[in-house]
């Protein structure tokens, strides 16, 4: 029997064998990714409420989409999300690249330091959010203590102030995820062949010129890749912010994903929130595609 099977398999083309191998994965993907996506898209055209059992589901056309896009609060949350993404990506790119450049030098304790720096990203975001609420506590938190060490600001209420709360989530995300950017940049830096620098030395290029013309172009594709991952992650950021600020004060740190969760699983407006989710998906998918194209162009250069 098994011999027969082996003989049969031998007769199959490479393409057929490849299909046999990937079919289970494709089926699984269809079942857990593609089907729910199309189901959500179909629900987004209805007035479906998951908690109203027995209520007639009506086709409402584009009404949900018009409602989502016409809502001021949705645009506010998009703005909050964009703000969060811009500052986290910018700061993480700068610090991550800086740390990678420092750690790329050979010195004693290099490995240990690298391990210590990457520790935060190994923690669960919910845990990070929770313990930073204690670190930010204006009375006993270490954050307030450190800030007051340099200048007497008094108690600093990072989570309760509408001005500081958006920065509080940027700081925590930066603390947690800069090591990720750093690691990828470090991989990029270590892939630059030494002979490029040796040739530059021969040509009497200054350190700055070496950085601009060799290091930066070589590491840029890696940095952009890290930022792509971070961008996608932060666009759907939820757990850390919920634990840290619950989206408050008011709605100062309510990111689009938090608002979506509240619409979908607290208000149970399934049709409306499906439309919202589709809009978010198209947004990140569109941005992602454009970004990848730009990244590939840079890489080709």
């Amino acid at each position: 029997m098994s011999k027969k099977l082996i003989n049969k398999a031998r007769g199959l083309s490479d393409k057929a064998i490849a299909w046999i191998f990937i079919t289970p994965t494709v089926l699984l993907l269809l079942a857990i990714n593609i089907y729910p996506l199309f189901y959500a898209i179909s629900m987004s055209f209805t007035n479906f409420y998951a908690n109203k059992i027995g209520k007639e589901i009506k086709w409402v056309g584009l009404k949900n989409y018009i409602k989502v896009l016409g809502k001021e609060s949705v645009w506010e949350r998009m703005q909050i999300t964009a703000n969060f993404m811009f500052w986290t990506l910018l700061i993480q790119a700068l610090i991550g690249l800086g740390l990678a450049l420092l750690l790329n030098k050979k010195f004693k304790g290099n490995e240990l330091l690298t391990t210590l720096i990457v520790l935060p990203m190994m923690l669960s975001p919910a845990v990070v959010g929770t313990f930073w609420t204690y670190l930010y506590n204006p009375q006993v938190g270490v954050f307030s203590y450190i800030m007051n060490f340099f200048y007497n600001f008094g108690p600093i209420d990072m989570i309760g102030s509408s001005v500081l709360a958006p920065w509080s989530i940027v700081i925590v995300d930066t603390w947690m995820w800069t090591p990720f950017t750093m690691l990828i940049c470090l991989a990029g830096l270590r892939s630059i062949p030494d002979y490029l620098y040796e040739a530059a030395e021969v040509d009497r290029a200054s350190r700055w010129q070496q950085f601009i013309y060799i290091t930066l172009p070589s590491v840029l594709p890696f940095l952009l890749l890290a930022l792509l991952f971070r961008g996608i992650e932060n666009f759907k950021m939820f757990d850390m912010v919920v634990e840290l600020t619950s989206g408050g004060p008011g709605s100062a740190t309510e990111l689009a994903s938090i608002q979506l969760k509240r619409e979908a699983f607290e208000k149970w407006k399934t049709g409306y929130s499906s439309a919202y989710a589709v809009i978010l998906f198209v947004t990140i998918f569109g941005f992602g595609n454009v970004y990848v194209k730009v990244m590939n162009k840079i890489k080709d250069r």
Binding site: S162, G248, P249, G250, S251, A252, E266, K267, W268, K269
Partner: peptide, 20 residues
């Protein structure tokens, strides 16, 4: 009631804590 609670939480917190 949850749909009624959420706007109350948001707008009251926005005014009382956020000062908006």
């Amino acid at each position: 009631f949850v749909e009624l609670m959420l706007p109350m939480q948001e707008h009251i917190h926005d005014y009382v804590v956020n000062g908006k």
